[in-house]
Design a protein around this nucleic acid. Structure first.
Lengths: 205, 205
DNA sequence: TCTGCTATCTGAACGGCGATAAGATAAGCG
DNA sequence: CGCTTATCTTATCGCCGTTCAGATAGCAGA
């Protein structure tokens, strides 16, 4: 997942600092979460001074925006890796499972992606990359619905359901409901059953 | 909503600093959101020195935990104010509407309530107050389901759906789907239609 | 190769933050 | 009245993001 971003730092000039800082920031999100991130820590991990990031990104938001864009890319990859079948309801269950698993596997990235105060959504790449992450998802809903009266409403409702599950589990709220289960056990044991039995979107419309 | 917390500051001793700091913190959440909160700003608003809050709350988390507990109380009030009818599916739609409206009316409080890093969930009052906020909600689901095989799974799925809608709207994601609509317009115009037409939990099981 | 231009990076500074601890103040109670 | 104790102030520490003058070196053109 990490670029090696050669050439490595050789002296005064790093050579590939921009990519190195993005990698460092992503690593901080992985190690310490979004609240553990700081611009200075990213500079430290990249082996440069505290003022160096400003030249490339201007501010902490600038750097985090790059990480968030990568996050949407990786979410899109995870969702697009789910194969389509001739059962769109089953596909929707698989997509929901992939979405929640992504959130649990990359909580720092996932949380960052939905933080309007830390991500510059006016970046021209944002609309494109965030929309593309959900295209396969929207298509599965359309396959299930056929000619719906309001596809956008359906997408929003299904997305909300999945996004809500991811957030409640990430925020530790599912523990209270399923007997202190770990995130892994939830994703591997409880969630698939839940999607098959109690989740109405996994049935034909 | 704000206590007047008499007696007001009279000199060296405030007299009711603990309540005044909770009010100040809640006001900061209202004015500047959760990211705009600081212990020093709360002290400033209460008219005391920056070290004063530590005596009463120990840390920022201590103060924010108090505010979060009040938040769960107020969410519980908002949900319990929704009357029960003989149509549990309609009740569920009303509860969903009240939940999302609460989140949009008190975004700072709402976000704080789900921040495990800012709220001490080991506080003995936490389990009680957070559970009570959702009791009426869980009862409506049980009335709709009758004798379900797994009520907890149903509660989790419905709650996720509602919680996901609240989060997506709060994080500005609904704008992209419903034409840049404001939060008020979403809560008053779009959401009721959505719950009636596209929301499967608002129908009988 | 030399020269100048420009991108890149350093290092110091500023104000704001949470936390801590020593000391000042006053409320309460015997 | 005097002692005890809770309350609040003040100073300090190490973080943080941001800014800016200056140091460094890559690089294009002569």
């Amino acid at each position: 997942m990490e670029n090696e971003n050669q050439p490595a730092k050789t002296g005064y000039h790093h050579g590939n600092l921009k990519a190195a800082l993005v990698d460092a920031a992503d690593a901080i999100l992985r190690d310490r979460g979004i609240e553990g991130f700081s611009l200075r820590e990213a500079a430290r991990r990249a082996g440069v001074s505290i003022g160096a990031p400003a030249h490339h990104f201007g501010s902490a938001t600038g750097l985090l925006t790059e990480v968030a864009l990568l996050g949407y890319d990786s979410l899109g990859e995870a969702l697009n890796a789910v194969p389509s079948s001739d059962d769109p309801a089953a596909d929707l269950r698989s997509l929901a499972l992939a979405y929640v698993r992504f959130a649990l596997a990359h909580p720092g990235r996932f949380r960052l992606m939905f933080r309007p105060d830390l991500v510059n959504r006016d970046d021209p790449r944002y609309a494109e990359v965030s929309a593309r992450a959900l295209t396969g998802f929207a298509q599965a809903i359309m396959r299930r619905d056929g000619a719906s009266t309001d596809t956008m409403a359906d997408v929003f409702v299904v997305w909300s359901s999945i996004h809500g599950m991811a957030n409640l589990v990430l925020d530790g709220k599912a523990k209270y409901m399923f007997g202190g289960v770990t995130a892994d056990a939830f994703a591997n044991d409880i969630l698939p059953k839940l999607l098959a039995d109690a989740w109405p979107f996994g049935r034909m419309a």
